[in-house]
Amino acid sequence: MPWLTAEEALQALKTKPQTLYANVSRGRIRAKPDPADPRRSLYQAADVQRLAERHAGRRKAETVATETIRWGDPVLSSAISTIIGGRLFYRGRDAADFADTATLEQTAALLWNGAEALASRTAAGHAAPSLQAAFLALAARVTSDLPSLGRSQAALRREASEVLCTVADALAPGSSDRPLHLRLAESWQRPNAADCLRRALVLLADHELNASTFAARVTASAGAALSASVLSGLATLTGPLHGAAWQGVDALIEAASALGAEQAIRRTLAQGHRLSAFGHPLYPDGDIRALALLSHFPLPQPFAELRETGEHMVGEKVNVDFVLAAMAAAFDLPREAPIIMFSLARSTGWLAHAMEQIDSGELIRPRARYAGPSPETTASP
C-alpha cells in the first residue's frame, strides 16, 4: 500500500497543511508515523488521490453513488431536520434558537409533528443513569411490541411516547412529573448543570441522516417495532466514530495534560488517529451545536488550552463531542455522561425518523457493488 510524504500529499491536493490535517482528523485520509522519522507522518496515497479527483471534478457516476452514503448527497427524503448554511433546523425552526427555551419534551413534539406528553407512569427508582439498563429495557420491549406496519400515525406517536419513557427511565431516572433535563441533573446531583443539560438535549435530538438514524430507519423500513428502531440506533451510537467520540476527546485531554496540547495533537496525527475534538464535515465554519453551548458553562483550563491550540494547528473549530466532554468535566459529571445525554436526546430523533420511514411505506434495500472473486460458472450439459 503506497504512502506519501506531507509534501507529496500537499502537491497532489493543491492545498494547505491545515487542510491536510483536517482531512486526517475527519478520517478522510489515513496517516501513520514515518518509520524513518516518527516525528513526521505518511499519508495513504489512495485516500489522497480520491480527494484530489473529487476536487478536480472527475468523479464517475459509480463513484458518486458510492460516496453518497459517506458525507455525500442526500439519499432519503425527510422533513424532520436539515443543515443549511451552517445552521441546524428542526422542521424549519433554527435548533440553536429553539434550544434557548425549549425542553426535550417540546423538541419531541416538534420532531414528531404533533405528540402527546410523556405517558404518565409510576415514578421510577432513583438509580444512576445506565446505558446498560436502556439496552435491556428496549430489548424486553422488542419481543412484545407490535410491528409498526399497518398502524396509524396517531397510534405510533402514542407508542413513541411510551418507548421514550422506557429510555428515560433508564437514562434519566426520577419522578415522571419532572422535565427530563431536571431528572438527569437530579440523578447526577448536579442541579447547577440543569439548564446546560436542557440546551444540550435539545441540540442533540436530531441531526439529519447520521449513522444511527440511518440504522433506525432501516429497521423501521422492515416493519419492526418502534422499540427495535431505537435499539438499532442506540447500538450504532455507541461506536467511537459516532456517539462515543467523546472518549477520543478525553484521551486527547489526558495526552495534553502529560505532553502539552501541541505535542498531544502532533502525536495523535502522527499515529494516524482521528482528532475527534475538531471539525465536522457538515459545518465548515464550526459545529453550531458546539457554538450554541460553549457560552453557557465555564470551559475547564485543559479544554480551553486544547481548543486554542488545536483550532490554530488543525484549522477546524471544536465540535459537539469536544463540548460534551468539556461539560462533563466542568460540572463534574460521571465519565459516561456524554453518551447518556446523547442517547436520551437522540432517541427522540430516532423515533421521529422511524415514524416517517413507516409512513413512506418503503423498504430500504440498497444494492452492493460486488468486488469479490469472479463467480464460478458451470457449463450447460
Score class of each variant (00 low, 15 high):
residue 300 P to V: 08
residue 73 D to R: 06
residue 380 S to C: 07
residue 320 V to C: 02
residue 100 D to M: 03
residue 125 G to N: 14
residue 220 A to I: 10
residue 48 V to C: 00
residue 292 A to G: 11
residue 122 T to K: 06
residue 64 V to R: 09
residue 125 G to Y: 00
residue 91 R to E: 07
residue 150 G to D: 10
residue 164 L to E: 09
residue 258 A to Q: 15
residue 190 R to K: 12
residue 327 M to S: 08
residue 287 D to P: 11
residue 73 D to K: 09
residue 196 C to G: 06
residue 277 A to I: 06
residue 355 M to F: 00
residue 220 A to Y: 05
residue 280 H to C: 05
residue 216 A to S: 14
residue 207 H to D: 14
residue 145 D to H: 09
residue 314 V to R: 07
residue 157 R to S: 11
residue 340 I to K: 01
residue 137 A to D: 13
residue 11 Q to H: 10
residue 142 V to Y: 02
residue 78 S to M: 00
residue 306 L to H: 10
residue 290 A to Q: 13
residue 130 S to E: 09
residue 204 L to Q: 10
residue 367 R to I: 03
residue 304 A to Y: 05
residue 162 E to G: 07
residue 215 A to S: 15
residue 233 G to K: 01
residue 369 R to Y: 07
residue 251 A to W: 00
residue 289 R to Q: 06
residue 296 H to G: 05
residue 134 A to G: 14
residue 109 A to N: 11
residue 125 G to S: 15
residue 21 Y to N: 07
residue 82 T to C: 09
residue 86 G to I: 04
residue 3 W to S: 04
residue 179 P to K: 06
residue 209 L to N: 12
residue 99 A to Q: 08
residue 356 E to Y: 05
residue 44 Q to W: 09
residue 218 V to A: 12
residue 27 G to S: 07
residue 347 S to H: 03
residue 273 H to C: 03
residue 359 D to P: 01
residue 92 G to D: 06
residue 328 A to I: 02
residue 272 G to H: 05
residue 233 G to H: 01
residue 75 V to L: 01
residue 202 V to Y: 02
residue 269 L to E: 11
residue 21 Y to A: 02
residue 128 A to H: 12
residue 366 P to F: 01
residue 355 M to A: 05
residue 87 R to S: 14
residue 17 P to V: 08
residue 301 Q to V: 11
residue 242 H to I: 02
residue 208 E to A: 10
residue 360 S to V: 02
residue 331 F to S: 06
residue 280 H to N: 07
residue 96 A to E: 15
residue 196 C to H: 08
residue 350 W to M: 01
residue 312 H to L: 03
residue 226 L to Y: 01
residue 379 A to Y: 03
residue 249 V to D: 05
residue 203 L to P: 09
residue 114 G to K: 03
residue 136 L to S: 14
residue 23 N to Q: 15
residue 89 F to I: 04
residue 288 I to D: 14
residue 311 E to M: 00
residue 292 A to P: 07
residue 342 F to N: 04
residue 239 G to R: 03
residue 329 A to P: 07
residue 132 Q to A: 13
residue 118 L to W: 11
residue 18 Q to W: 01
residue 185 A to F: 10
residue 154 A to Y: 02
residue 61 A to N: 11
residue 225 A to S: 15
residue 205 A to V: 12
residue 345 A to P: 06
residue 284 P to F: 03
residue 140 A to T: 15
residue 307 R to E: 15
residue 170 A to G: 08
residue 364 I to V: 11
residue 119 A to V: 15
residue 288 I to P: 06
residue 149 L to W: 10
residue 17 P to K: 07
residue 207 H to T: 04
residue 112 W to Y: 03
residue 65 A to K: 04
residue 141 R to V: 03
residue 41 S to A: 15
residue 376 E to N: 13
residue 195 D to Q: 14
residue 316 E to C: 05
residue 316 E to H: 07
residue 363 L to D: 14
residue 185 A to H: 11
residue 158 R to D: 15
residue 71 W to P: 00
residue 310 G to Q: 05
residue 191 P to N: 12
residue 328 A to Q: 08
